[in-house]
Every structure is written in C-alpha cells, then in structure tokens.
Design a protein around this nucleic acid. Structure first.
Length: 121
DNA sequence: CGTCCTGGGAACG
DNA sequence: CGTTCCCAGGACG
C-alpha cells in the first residue's frame, strides 16, 4: 500500500539536496492524476519557467520515480517525449506501457491518441 | 564565469 | 514534415 500523497509531497518538499527548481517541478507533477498527462511546456508554465527544456532536464534525473510520475509528461506536439534519459529504446517502451496501463492510449506514431487526457491545472 | 549539452517548443517554409 | 532559433538549468572546466 502506498503512502498518502501528502506524505510523498512532504518528502519531496523536505529534500534539501534538491534545487528549488527541481523541487517545484516534482511537486507540480504530483498534481497530475493517473490516467491523465501533462506536457513539459505546461509544467514549465505552471512553475513560472519559460523553458520546457529545463523541465525535461529535471525529470531526466527524477530521484522519486515512479512515485513522482515523470512518465505522465509528454511533448507539446503530443509526442511521447523521453524517459529515463532516453528518447527511444527500452525506456521509452516502458513509458508507453506505463501510460497504457493507466488507460492512456497512444497511436502508431507514438503520439497521444486522446488529447482530452491532457491535465489542465 | 564561459561553454556545451539537454526527455522542449514555437515559428517558418 | 524538416529547419532553425530560442529558453533556461545543470554539469564541467
């Protein structure tokens, strides 16, 4: 049984070795529920950052995975984006499986099939 | 501090 | 769809 969202949230917020930026990214991501996804750009905007790429960098080394659902973050063009530091390959395949398991279907091109799944803050 | 490399994105042709 | 330019953070020297 997993711990409460609040406890996880607190653990992330309390991690001192994390930069304020990365902490903000992880906390904002915790707001995205299973079955829904967000984009690097939306996440960036959410925390007041102008660079979606910077968010990607933060997710790249997510120490709280998979509790902090970095797999629920896709690209703005509905592309699959990256996972565990990779843009293609085994990790990406894993990301797709995780999403599909949560009921988030992707088309043949690996793009989000249902745009309505995008989480709106 | 300068420089280079990102899991991105928007603009343009 | 491919190209190009741009944003900002972190790793490295």
């Amino acid at each position: 049984m997993e711990r409460s969202k609040t406890e996880l949230r607190r653990r992330v917020a309390g991690d001192g070795h994390l930069s304020a930026f990365r902490r903000a990214v992880y906390l904002a991501l915790l707001e995205v529920p299973p079955g829904r996804v967000t984009t690097y750009g939306l996440l960036a905007r959410r925390i007041g950052c102008a660079s979606a790429r910077a968010v990607g960098g933060a997710l790249r080394e997510n120490p709280f995975a998979p509790e902090v659902p970095c797999h629920r973050v896709i690209a703005s063009d509905l592309g699959i984006g990256g996972f565990a530091g990779q843009t293609r390959g085994a990790e990406i395949r894993r990301k797709v499986l995780l999403l599909r398991a949560e009921g988030v279907p992707l088309d043949e091109g690996g793009r989000l099939a249902e745009p309505g799944r995008i989480w709106t803050y």
